[in-house]
Simulated assay, not measured.
Amino acid sequence: MAIPLVVGIDRSEWSLEAVDLAAAEAARHSLSLHLHSAAGDREPSDVISAGAS
């Protein structure tokens, strides 16, 4: 069983870039990707959506 790739995200641009890199690595190695949010008053999906735009 493969260990998942775990990434912590917050509101920063740096963390959104880390998600992009982690997603590419997870796909490259066929790993699941687990995102853990430190978004404060925002929903994790809002933080991820902000990074996708």
Rank of each mutant, 00 (worst) to 15 (best):
V19M: 10
D20V: 10
E25T: 13
A27H: 03
V7W: 04
I9G: 01
E13V: 02
S49V: 06
A27M: 04
I48Y: 10
D10H: 07
S49R: 15
A2Q: 05
A38L: 12
L31P: 00
S37G: 15
V7G: 05
A50L: 15
A50T: 15
P4R: 04
I48F: 07
A39F: 02
L16K: 15
E25R: 14
L21K: 11
L33R: 15
L31H: 09
H34L: 12
D41N: 11
D41V: 08
S30E: 12
W14F: 00
S45G: 08
L5T: 06
S49N: 14
S15I: 01
V19E: 05
L31E: 10
A23Q: 01
R11Q: 12
S30W: 07
L5R: 04
E25Y: 11
E43F: 08
E13Q: 07
V7C: 06
M1V: 12
H29Q: 10
H29L: 07
E25K: 13
H36K: 08
E25W: 14
S30N: 13
H34K: 09
P44I: 15
I3C: 07
S53V: 01
D20M: 06
S53D: 03
S15V: 00
R11S: 08
G51A: 07
M1C: 07
H29M: 00
I48N: 09
S37D: 10
R28K: 13
D41H: 11
P4A: 10
L5S: 05
A27T: 05
E25I: 11
S45I: 14
S32D: 14
L21E: 06
M1D: 07
A18V: 11
L35M: 09
G40E: 15
A52V: 06
R11N: 12
L5D: 03
V6R: 15
E43A: 15
A22T: 04
G51P: 09
D46I: 08
S45F: 13
L35A: 10
A23W: 00
V7E: 09
L33Q: 15
D20C: 05
A23E: 00
P4Q: 09
G8E: 02
R42W: 03
I3N: 13
D20A: 12
V7Y: 05
P4K: 06
V19N: 10
L21S: 04
S45C: 12
A50Y: 14
E13R: 07
G51M: 11
E43M: 11
S15M: 02
E13F: 01
S37R: 04
V7Q: 08
A52Q: 10
V47L: 14
L5W: 02
S15D: 03
E17M: 12
L5G: 01
D20P: 00
S30Y: 06
A2E: 07
A27C: 00
A18Q: 07
E17G: 08
H36N: 04
D41M: 06
A27E: 07
S12V: 11
E25G: 03
A39Q: 02
L31T: 02
A52E: 07
S30T: 13
S53Y: 00
P4F: 09
I48R: 09
